[in-house]
C-alpha cells in the first residue's frame, strides 16, 4: 500500500493519498509510516510492508513513534532517487506478509534502474529483494561471451585499467609535489 505526494518536505509532509490495499483488510488497525527519497515525495507504507527492510524496521523499533509522530516525521532517504524508492515501496507492498517465492515475477523490470535499485535495496537491507536483484544482475551475463560481459558489466580493458592507474599515480605525484611546495612556502 503506497501513497505519494509530490513536493512535500520531510519536515512538513502534506497529507498523502492512499491507494486501496491489495491484501485482505487486517482485523486490527494497521499502523503506517512515511518515507521519502531525494525527490521529497512522501510514501505512506504499512508497518507490515516495511518489515521487509531491516533498516527501517530497526528505526521504527528504536523510535517507538505513534502514527501522528510518524506522519509528521517521514523517514528521509536522501540518497535514494524517488522513482527507485517507489519501486522498493511497491515491492514491499506486493510482498507484505507473504512468503517470498523462489522466482519473483514482481521484480522491477527497468534494467536501466537496476544499478540504483540494487544500491538502494542494499542500503535499506531488504534481504529477499537484494537476492532477487543480484540474481538478475548475474543472469545478465548468462551465456554471454567475454566481450559481451565486458559491455554489460562495464568492465574496463586491461589497457584502460593501466592507463587509469598511470593517471592516478601522476595526479597523486602532482598533489604531493604541490603539498611539498606549499609546506616549503609556509616554512619561509
Amino acid at each position: 500500500m503506497s501513497s505519494t505526494e509530490q513536493g512535500t518536505s520531510s519536515a512538513a509532509p502534506a497529507e498523502p493519498t492512499t491507494a486501496p490495499e491489495s491484501a485482505a483488510a487486517p482485523e486490527v488497525p494497521e499502523s503506517f509510516y512515511y518515507v521519502h527519497g531525494k525527490d521529497k515525495v512522501v510514501h505512506k507504507v504499512s508497518a507490515g510492508a516495511l518489515q521487509h527492510s531491516a533498516l527501517i524496521h530497526g528505526m521504527i523499533s528504536n523510535l517507538g513513534y505513534t502514527e501522528e509522530q510518524a506522519k509528521a516525521n517521514p523517514f528521509p532517504f536522501e540518497n535514494i532517487d524517488g522513482d527507485i524508492l517507489q519501486m522498493v515501496v511497491d515491492w514491499c507492498n506486493q510482498h507484505k506478509g507473504k512468503p517470498t517465492p523462489p522466482e519473483d515475477t514482481n521484480l522491477p523490470k527497468q534494467k536501466e534502474k537496476l544499478f540504483d535499485l540494487v544500491l538502494a535495496v542494499n542500503y535499506l537491507e531488504i534481504k529477499e529483494l537484494l537476492t532477487y536483484c543480484c540474481k538478475q544482475v548475474a543472469m545478465m551475463v548468462k551465456g554471454k561471451s567475454p566481450e559481451e560481459i565486458r559491455e554489460i558489466w562495464m568492465i574496463p580493458t586491461d589497457a584502460e585499467d593501466e592507463a587509469a592507474e598511470k593517471e592516478a599515480k601522476k595526479r597523486a605525484g602532482k598533489e604531493a609535489a604541490g603539498e611539498t611546495a606549499a609546506a616549503a612556502g609556509d616554512a619561509k
Binding site: 536501466e112 544499478f115 540494487v118 544500491l119 545478465m140 554489460i152 558489466w153 562495464m154 568492465i155
Partner: peptide, 13 residues
C-alpha cells in the same frame, strides 16, 4: 542495459 558491476560495494559485488 549495462550496469557498472565493479562499482558496487564489495559486499554487494
Amino acid at each position: 542495459m549495462p550496469i557498472a558491476l565493479f562499482k558496487f560495494p564489495n559486499d554487494l559485488l
